[in-house]
Design a protein around this nucleic acid. Structure first.
Length: 133
DNA sequence: GCCAACGTTGGC
DNA sequence: GCCAACGTTGGC
């Protein structure tokens, strides 16, 4: 079982959309590092859902409902997608600020690599983040 | 809305 | 294969 964090601009696709859709194909990723994470995802992994821009907070939890496969939005073999399933929306969002203020979380990709949209989390980091809620 | 950070592209 | 130019992301 692995843990991940994905970012999304809520104006494009929000946790509410995922809640309504129940499942979605997480495609369109065109960054190698993010792609490599997608590739390693497998069914049952847990995924924190982060809203960028206006919200800047972790707003929910999803799970991987289908192992990675070739991205249907690209002709190129190298791009990968997964299917994510809605798990829950957090009652209290975990803001970027709270994450930044936690010294145990200073090394996570979210803070270190601003532009990375899919990143792995260690179990400890995942647990630590959810402690903030 | 601005702009820094940084990944990607393409000319050489 | 290097690196300048360009485009995009995302925090502020």
């Amino acid at each position: 079982m692995n843990y991940w964090l994905v970012k999304s601009d809520p104006e494009t696709y929000s946790i509410e959309n995922l809640k309504i859709d129940k499942k979605t194909i997480w495609d369109g990723v065109r960054n190698y590092q993010a792609r490599n994470s997608l590739k390693e995802m497998s069914k049952g992994d847990l995924v924190l859902f982060y809203h960028s821009h206006i919200e800047k907070a972790i707003v929910g939890i999803a799970s991987v409902s289908k192992d990675s496969f070739q991205d249907p939005t690209s002709q190129e073999e190298r791009w990968i997608a997964v299917e994510l399933k809605f798990e829950k929306k957090l009652k209290k969002f975990i803001s970027l600020e709270e994450i930044q203020n936690n010294p145990k979380l200073k090394d996570i990709g979210l803070l270190k690599q601003q532009r990375l949209s899919v990143m792995p989390l260690k179990k400890e980091e995942y647990d630590e983040i959810l402690k903030l809620k």
